[in-house]
Amino acid sequence: MAPRFEARIRIRSDADIVAARRQGRALAEQMGFSSTDVTVIATAISEVARNIVQYAREGEVVVSATREDGRDGLTIVARDQGPGIADVVKAMQPGYSTANSLGLGLPGARRLMDDFEISSRVGEGTTVTMTKWQR
């Protein structure tokens, strides 16, 4: 399943969070997502990109158009080589946060998207892959 379009945004500061969600919004609009879904996608990107800035300092967000079983989707991959998450199950619980934030970031992004996967290894980093399918 090769992506038909891909944009890669380096995440190093809070300004990059805005750049990432702008890219995601542009692609979602181009793919014909509803304005509600465009906003939902941009919001999910904001949360995962902020997670990178907050916990790993730097990483990347890749947004791409994908197709699977005849469906079009927009996939977001947020990747970092940060400290990793010791307890992923716990991190996915709303309200759990180690950085004095609301702890809504990852569980919130999962609720916003259709598919959500997270893999993390302590000392190696975290990768979040999430997709919104076109209705």
């Binding site: 304005s35 509600t36 465009v38 906003t39 939902v40 919001t43 949360e47 709303p94 609301l102 809504l104 569980p107 919130g108 992004a109 609720r111 916003l112």
Partner: peptide, 14 residues
Amino acid sequence: IQPEVAFAMVQLGL
């Protein structure tokens, strides 16, 4: 607050 933004906020649990 725009309607789409309100929708996303509620989905996110904000």
